[in-house]
Design a protein around this nucleic acid. Sequence first.
RNA 1: GGAGAGGUGGCAGAGUGGUUGAACGCGCACGCUUGGAAAGCGUGUUUACGGAAACGUAACGGGGGUUCGAAUCCCCCUCUCUCCGCCA
Length: 425
Amino acid sequence: MIEIQRIKENKEEVLLGLSKRNIDAKQEVEQIIALDHDWRLKKTQLQDVETELNAISKQIGVLFSTGKQEEAKVLKSKTGALKEALQAFKIEEEALEKKIQDVLFTLPNVCTQEVPAGKDETANEIIEEFGTSPSLEEAPLPHWELAKEYTLIDFELGVKVTGAGFPFYRGQGARFQRALVSFFLDEAVDAGYEEFISPLMVNENSGKGTGQLPDKEGQMYYIGADDLYLIPTAEVPLTNIYRDVILPDPNFSIKLTGHTPCFRREAGSYGKDVRGLNRLHQFEKVEIVRIETPENSEKALHEMIDHIKSLLQKLGLQYRVLRLCGGDTGFAAAITYDFEVYSAAQEKWLEVSSVSRFDTFQSNRLKLRFKDENKKSRLCHTLNGSALALPRIMAALLENNQVPTGINIPEPLRKYTGFDMITKK
RNA sequence: GGAGAGGUGGCAGAGUGGUUGAACGCGCACGCUUGGAAAGCGUGUUUACGGAAACGUAACGGGGGUUCGAAUCCCCCUCUCUCCGCCA
């Protein structure tokens, strides 16, 4: 959540950043400032009473130990009223604090200066395009047709065993996916990210830490019997490694990566956009996560962007980079860049990566801090990005690399697949 | 799942109702000492909030209770360890 200090000190900047999301938060911001003022006042009053009560208790202790029972009794009788006052102040103070939290929780992150204002994806800015569409034979097949023809993915089996959106990958399809995962992980490790295999379920505190809870509760699968959530992305377990951590000095740059399945309920999705691999309840993704000082986070963001570009270029995919407008930027992000690859058979752009800077929005919830040069605790910046999400990359590669005799495997993947081309068996 | 033991500062580990935010030790930082180092000596060394500061308040796994006063007593939850059971 937004730091309350920032709201107080840079009210206009906060309002401007939120306005890019089409949100007028003037009322909430004023309310928070007023509540915070009241809370401070109440807190001081509360502490005054506590000070007095502590002093009396101390005196009683001394009196007892010196055998002055009578004097102690007199003092004791004075504490009743104070305790009542203490209770009252405490209740008021806690109520105020909760109210502030409640309002704060409703506010999304403040968008940065470069984020374009706008309501939906039509306002996103295309900032870069790379590559050209492959020249395919007439009537290229969409990936779900190719998947059937070469027995790569079985959607019907998934429906039988689990339900829609849970496909089986099989044979060369399974191998192809595994090759992509290995390639992405190796590239990340080469770029200095530490590889993790993480839990696939997380507790409530972790969900809150990265901002999925409470605002996206309905999007996660929930295991009621054990009070756990299936992860919607590796971002959640990876970032939460650093929940409640204070890094001891300002010279750090934490780079994590992990490959996990991602589980998303995708409530309300339907239609042709969900055809084939375009939208699934379970899919695989390699995620990269970074924890940086505020001074370094913008640089880190661009390193991540460059990393993703290089992956797409090595795979020979045509892509474009979008800077999302405020309305399309996720709740916790300050700025987000999306990567889309061109799917030649479907003739459309598919989102394959989303890279975001969260500034202190997550770390404020996570209580993830570092000691600066003056040994002061400051909140870290967190960032993450997909590098990459598997299904749509697979869809694009299948479609774009189809030839009459099969489907060509991009060169960098061949050492992982063990074959150069997907063929009919 | 059953039985027992336990969760205290960076670590190790005292502390069973009173000036204990917490002994002693290790580690760490700074200083003294030294040609330099070690040893030695001294000082310091949790976090959050309020405050310009002095200082104050809170926190001994989490939550609640008893009490003038709780790390210490009571209740609930949770986690760890040991033994048993089960098991890829």
